Amino acid sequence: MVADAPVNGDLFRLDDGEAHVAGVDEAGRGPLAGPVAVAAVILDPARPVAGLDDSKKLTERRREALFPLIQEHALAWRIVFVEPAEIDTLNILQATLEGMRRALSLLEPRPRLARIDGNLVPSGLACAGEAVVGGDGIEPAIMAASILAKVARDRAMHVLHAQWPQYGFDAHKGYPTPAHLAALAEHGPCPAHRRSFAPVRRSLDLGCVVQVPG
């Protein structure tokens, strides 16, 4: 799986320092499987994207339509995946914060301020950071980041579904739905599962067979 997506370098503008404020959001902290996706976006005030909103309030079709528009119109954007093995090593909170640091560090032009959805700001940022509770509903740059992260992660889960169809990743995206828990009990975890998460850990404690690539 690709670890991060390329910056859309053709659209950078360096003449508007006020515009260099990045919105940051994540998708996939709660699932039992798959990566956590983090996106950072610097929007261009001269090229607004109509219809931005919290990704959770948008239909899948609308998110998919906005995804390329954000990439085309933004001054800069970056999407980073933190994979299950690193999540298990760091824990999900620290893995998410690390993804935010990486996404912001890869933006060019560099932001002068990062507005981050939630109540925590990662340490070690190369710019000032500001936590915005509910930011994915009020801050356009965070809305854009939430859409990029959600769409990118959903697409990644479809890729994992093609490899491990017995878990139904295309439907529940790795979240602990009854169908996913039943599949986990029947098949045991696969390499895409987060072994530090309690339901996966319990399946290992019960001796469920770990699925390996065929």
Rank of each mutant, 00 (worst) to 15 (best):
R115G: 03
D25R: 09
A76N: 00
G34K: 12
Q94I: 08
G51W: 06
G124Y: 02
A85E: 14
P109I: 13
R47E: 11
L125K: 05
A85V: 10
A74I: 04
R78D: 01
L125Q: 02
K57G: 05
H73Q: 12
E60G: 14
E86C: 07
L66N: 09
E130D: 00
Q71P: 01
L120N: 01
G51H: 04
A103P: 09
A128C: 05
L75S: 02
V21F: 15
S123C: 06
R102G: 06
L125G: 02
G30I: 13
S105N: 00
G129H: 01
R62D: 01
L69K: 12
R29A: 10
P45C: 14
A27T: 05
L69W: 04
V41M: 03
L97N: 05
N119A: 11
E86R: 14
L52P: 09
E98F: 04
E26F: 12
A126N: 00
R61Y: 02
G99W: 07
A37S: 13
D53S: 15
G30Y: 09
E83K: 05
P140N: 13
V82I: 15
A22W: 08
E64W: 06
L125P: 04
L32D: 11
G34L: 13
L104M: 09
A65Y: 08
R61V: 14
V41N: 01
L90D: 08
R102D: 06
S123T: 02
D136C: 01
H20F: 12
E98T: 11
I42V: 15
I138R: 15
I116D: 02
G99P: 02
S55N: 10
P35M: 11
A33K: 11
G124E: 07
G118W: 00
V80Q: 06
T89E: 15
A46H: 12
M100H: 09
P68F: 01
I116Q: 05
R63W: 03
M100S: 09
V132I: 10
V38A: 10
G51A: 13
L32T: 12
T89L: 15
K56I: 09
A27R: 06
R61H: 11
A131Q: 08
E130F: 01
G34Y: 06
R112N: 05
F81Y: 06
L52A: 12
I116V: 14
P122S: 00
L75I: 15
E26N: 08
D53K: 15
L43T: 03
P35R: 11
V41Q: 01
P109E: 10
L106K: 14
A126I: 07
R47L: 15
F67W: 03
R63M: 05
F81A: 03
R47H: 15
R115T: 10
I138A: 14
R110Q: 13
K57P: 04
P140T: 11
R110Y: 11
P68E: 03
T96Q: 00
R63K: 12
P31I: 14
D53W: 03
S146Y: 03
G134D: 00
S146D: 04
T96G: 07
R115K: 15
V36W: 08
A131C: 05
L58N: 01
A65M: 13
V21N: 13
R78P: 00
P109V: 11
